[in-house]
Simulated scan of single mutants.
Amino acid sequence: MEFIDLKAQYHTLRPSINARIRTVLEHGHYIMGPEVQELEERLSDYTGARHCITVASGTEALLIALMAIGVRPGDEVITTPFSFVATAEVIALIGAVPVFADIEPDTCNIDATLIERKITPRTRAILPVSLFGQASDMDAINAIADRHGLTVIEDAAQSFGATYKGRKSCNLSTIGCTSFFPSKPLGCYGDGGAIFTSDDDLAQAMREIRVHGQEQRYRHSRIGVGGRMDTLQCAIVLAKLDRFDWELEQRQHIAAQYDELLGHKVERVIQRPDRDSVYAQYTVFLDHREAVRDTLNKANVPTAVHYPIPIPLQPAYRHFTKEHFPVAAQMAQRVLSLPMGPYLDVYSLTRVADLLLRAKAHSTAQAVPPVAFGALDTVSNG
Rank of each mutant, 00 (worst) to 15 (best):
D276K: 05
I144A: 07
F244N: 10
C188D: 06
H362A: 13
Y343I: 02
C170P: 03
S130N: 15
L296A: 11
D377H: 08
I144S: 12
D276M: 11
Y347K: 15
T120V: 08
I21A: 09
P98A: 06
T151A: 13
T295S: 13
Q366W: 00
I78K: 02
T163H: 12
V152K: 09
P182N: 05
S57L: 02
R217H: 13
E290H: 10
H51L: 02
L202F: 07
Y282F: 14
G213K: 12
L13D: 10
E116V: 08
R351Y: 08
Q366T: 11
L248F: 01
H362Q: 13
L114K: 15
M32G: 13
Q250L: 09
C188Q: 03
F100V: 00
E290N: 14
Y307M: 14
T120Y: 03
G149Y: 02
S169I: 01
L357Y: 01
T12Q: 13
L336Y: 07
S363P: 04
R358A: 14
I17H: 03
P273W: 03
M206K: 04
D201C: 09
H29R: 13
Q134N: 06
H29S: 12
A96R: 06
T47R: 05
I115V: 13
A367V: 02
N297C: 09
G133I: 00
Q366C: 10
T47D: 11
N18V: 09
F3I: 12
L66C: 12
